[in-house]
Write a protein that binds this DNA or RNA. Structure first.
Lengths: 196, 196
DNA sequence: CGACTTAGATAGGAAGCGCTATGTTTCCTG
DNA sequence: CAGGAAACATAGCGCTTCCTATCTAAGTCG
């Protein structure tokens, strides 16, 4: 038989996967603890043992999951050279992510809604976004004019989220070319100077 | 005493206001019918008489509410002349709307999450966004190059939503100047031509 | 191999949910 | 002013929810 550690690790992963699916499908509040456990082929007792309830599962997801995408983008970015290549890389990873088959935006939305009324979750989310902003700032620092205090991070991350939201409403309304053009516009506008 | 029509109209408005507050505070699923009724100083019976349950309240909010902002922006836009003036007008109405004191983004988020798992709500939302896109397209049509099929609508609306989301995480991260610069970048990038 | 620990199952309680059926009050109409 | 309809209140049914207390089987270690 498997060792206890392996056993526990597998149960944990099963619960996380099941929760990610259900949260994306039905929302956090729409997913019962029992439903998560059932999809993971475990019982609610396991959830209360591993995490401390539904909220704990959410936080665990929050910790581990988006980091993966950030890492993936970071790795790919190193190989890109031109601005448009970089933007295309970012956009591709957002619009067609390597893992989670598009569930991420629904999950991200859930986290947002949840964070809007939960201080702990809000802190988590804020930290994550600030880290993302810094990453973007660093990636584009000095691309055009390094003297200007960078404001590209929030604008670019915001545009990415907004574009993906619009794409969910109508996939045809957001073409790759259009997205990259918009991203380029934002990068240039927020790095070459703040205003007239 | 007030006429029956007036009485009914006031109850309806009370219920809508209470629901908008609660949905923004606790989410749609987190707000019980009784809680909505209680905040409106009515009972759940009134809700089932006016609308046909919680979902009906949501749809009623969806119908009547965002239109107001669109109308307000439309009216103000008529007086603006330069591109930056127009963008400033739009951004001001988004970041500091005339009604609802900033609840709108939370409510919008709720609608999104809800629409993600409800076909009817999804249709509502899609129609609204398409109307918004068309409005933007019309407002900026021919600003630079009328021959290009317009794609500014989804990009600009998306950026507005994304910027507001970032601003909720950290108000200082999104200055007005930065927002307008980003908006200008997107407008120019998506109207002057699609790509290289 | 026996003592102990750990992982997770099981069962159930208390509370909250949406919704309906029925009751009461208020207004309108003839 | 009587009768009816409209507007909302009340009470409660049936179901689901989260969570805890308790128990069992599997693994670990001296």
């Amino acid at each position: 038989m498997a060792t206890q550690g392996e056993r526990r690790a597998e149960t944990r992963q099963r619960l996380l996967d099941a929760a990610a699916e259900l949260f994306a499908e039905r929302g956090v509040e729409g997913s019962s603890v029992d439903a998560i456990a059932e999809r993971a082929e475990r019982t609610s007792g396991a959830i209360y043992d591993h995490f401390e309830g539904k909220e704990g599962v959410l936080f665990a997801l929050l910790e581990g999951w988006v980091d993966d995408v950030a890492v993936a983008i970071g790795a790919e970015l190193a190989t890109a050279t031109s601005l448009d290549e970089r933007l295309a890389t970012i956009w591709r990873n957002v619009s067609d992510p390597p893992t989670g088959d598009g569930r991420w935006i629904a999950l991200e939305h859930e986290l947002w809604s949840y964070a809007a009324r939960n201080a702990d979750a809000r802190d988590h989310l804020a930290r994550r976004y600030r880290a993302a902003w810094d990453g973007v700032d660093e990636a584009f620092a000095g691309w055009d004019d390094p003297r200007v205090p960078s404001a590209v991070g929030p604008a670019l991350i915001g545009l990415l989220l907004g574009l993906e939201m619009m794409r969910r409403v109508d996939p045809n309304a957001v073409t790759d070319d259009m997205a990259i053009a918009a991203l380029r516009g934002v990068v240039i506008a927020t790095t070459t100077g703040v205003h007239a």
